[in-house]
C-alpha cells in the first residue's frame, strides 16, 4: 500500500486537493482510503463519502493534534492494509503552525493557499519546510504576479520541494500532481520509522488540567516571554 500524508493550515484546501487528486489518479475509488485527523469537529468525511471514498475520522480533542497523529498513524496503516487499499491518504490540519507530523521516507504533502498572505510561507515552519511536495491552491483568485511572489516565498523556506499549483474547484493541475505521486513507495508497516522532527514538547501543569492563572500553578515545561 502507498501512504501519502497531507498537511496544511485549516481551510487551505486539503480535502479539495485530495478529492481532485483521487479523481486524477485513475484508480478505483474503492482502493483508496482516507484518514482524517482533526481537533474538534469535521465535516470532511461527508465530502469523501460522497465521492465514494472510505474515510475514518479521529479527533484529538484536548490532546496535542500532532501527538495524537503519531500515536494513531501505525494503526491507520494497519487498517488500510486490512481494508485492501492500494493508497492510503492521511489529512491533518497544522494547528500551531509549527508542525504536522511527517515521517521519514513517507511522502509528505503540504497544502497552502494563495489567499493566506504573501509572508505566510515564511511563518508556517516545519510543516512547509520539511514537505516533499508543496501544493498551492486558490491561485485562480489571485494574479499571476501574486502567485509568483508566493511561490518565491515558498522556495525561500523549502528549497528542494516540488511545487504544484492545483485548482481545488476545477482540478486544474491535479493531474500533474497525481503523476508525480504515483511513484510513491509501498509500505507494509510504520513500526520503527521516525518522524522528521519532534512534536511540540509539553507536559506542563496546563496539559494536565490546570486552569488557574499564576506563577504558583505553573509546573513542568514552561516558556516565559521577556518584556522589556
Amino acid at each position: 500500500m502507498k501512504l501519502i500524508t497531507v498537511a496544511g493550515p485549516p481551510s487551505s484546501g486539503k480535502t479539495s486537493v485530495i478529492l481532485k487528486l483521487v479523481e486524477s489518479m485513475q484508480v478505483n475509488v474503492k482502493e483508496i482510503g482516507v484518514v482524517k485527523f482533526d481537533c474538534l469537529t469535521s465535516f470532511d468525511n461527508l465530502r469523501y463519502e460522497e465521492a465514494g471514498i472510505r474515510v475514518e475520522t479521529g479527533f484529538s480533542g484536548k490532546l496535542c493534534p500532532d501527538h495524537f497523529f503519531v500515536s494513531n498513524i501505525e494503526s491507520a496503516v494497519e487498517w488500510g492494509i486490512k481494508s485492501g487499499f492500494k493508497i492510503l491518504i492521511t489529512e491533518s490540519a497544522g494547528l500551531c503552525n509549527r508542525c504536522s507530523p511527517y515521517i521519514q521516507g513517507i511522502l509528505s504533502v503540504c497544502v497552502i493557499d494563495n489567499l493566506s498572505g504573501v509572508n505566510t510561507p515564511r511563518k508556517i515552519g516545519p510543516m512547509l519546510k520539511m514537505a516533499d511536495v508543496v501544493v498551492v491552491t486558490k491561485g485562480d483568485i489571485v494574479s499571476q504576479a501574486e502567485r509568483e511572489v508566493f511561490a518565491f516565498n515558498i522556495r525561500q523556506v523549502n528549497t528542494s520541494a516540488r511545487i504544484f499549483f492545483v485548482n481545488g474547484i476545477n482540478g486544474q493541475g491535479a493531474f500533474l500532481l497525481a503523476k508525480h505521486l504515483q511513484d510513491t513507495r509501498e509500505v507494509t508497516s510504520l513500526r520503527d520509522m521516525k518522524l522528521r522532527f519532534t512534536t511540540p514538547a509539553a507536559v506542563c501543569s496546563y496539559c494536565t488540567g490546570e486552569i488557574r492563572i499564576g506563577e504558583e500553578y505553573q509546573m513542568g515545561t514552561m516558556k516565559k516571554m521577556e518584556f522589556k
Binding site: 494563495n114 489567499l115 498572505g117 504573501v118 485562480d140 483568485i141 489571485v142 494574479s143 499571476q144 501574486e146
Partner: peptide, 10 residues
C-alpha cells in the same frame, strides 16, 4: 496565466 478574475488581494 491571466485569469478571468483579475483583482489583487495583497
Amino acid at each position: 496565466q491571466l485569469s478571468q478574475n483579475m483583482n489583487f488581494v495583497m
